[in-house]
Amino acid sequence: MSTDSYKIDINGLKKQFGDLVVLRDINLKVPTGDVVALIGPSGSGKSTLLRCMNLLIIPDGGTVQIGKDAFSFGPGTRLPSGQQQARFRMGTGMVFQHFNLFPHMTVLQNVMEGPVSAKGTPKAEAAVLARKLLAKVGLAEKADVYPQRLSGGQKQRVAIARALAMEPDVMLFDEATSALDPELVSEVLSVMKDLAAEGMTMIIVTHEIAFAREVADTVVFMRDGVVVEEGPARTVIDNPVQEATRSFLKHFHTRN
């Protein structure tokens, strides 16, 4: 396989905060349309890895390539400018644990913000797109309310629509269901599942092991800033090879 067929290609990625090494030497290749679940204990570096993929955290070393855009980091490289970073991030959509909807904007304005302010899409056109995406996540009738009037599950679905409005190549999910009440988790997971079925390339940091097993093509288990084990989702979750993976998965009931 040539490198071109990978949507995401990460090589030798390193990051440390002060003395704390968070990512040691991460390599990850994701073919177009694949869904990768990043699992592991808290502090394993999975959220940091996700944030390095859209440069919300600037890596200390290694390369990050998404689609045709690639950046190298570390000694002898130039930090990408603010403009370059912003353009790069347009190609990736991110969904956060705490939704981070803009409270001073209506649901519709939240979804329009990216196309209008980052891409310069005319407002009327962005509104049409936003309404289409809100319908897709089942929230067409909430277009004109403010986010604080929504439930957690509804907020997260709006956040997904907001990210999709940039028509990204890749979607990054950072514990998208961890802050939700249990009964609201499934409505968000079902939207994510639909996206995966449509062929969206997705990286999902999650504690929903059953969901990872069902939806992900690949599961990556991380601990202490390294990838401990990586493989087809069912294989890794049902028959982990590494002791660390086994002991981590013991905490979950993977088959409902």
Binding site: L56, Q85, R89, M94, F102, M166
Partner: peptide, 29 residues
């Protein structure tokens, strides 16, 4: 909340636009 800034940046807005469109309108309150 820094999550507001992150969400703006993640959409592809530049730092200046994040400040003008996302952070300042909320901070003014």
């Amino acid at each position: 909340d820094t999550g507001q800034r992150e969400a703006g940046l993640a959409l592809g807005l530049t730092s200046g636009k994040v400040m003008r469109r996302i952070v300042l309108p909320q901070a003014v309150k």
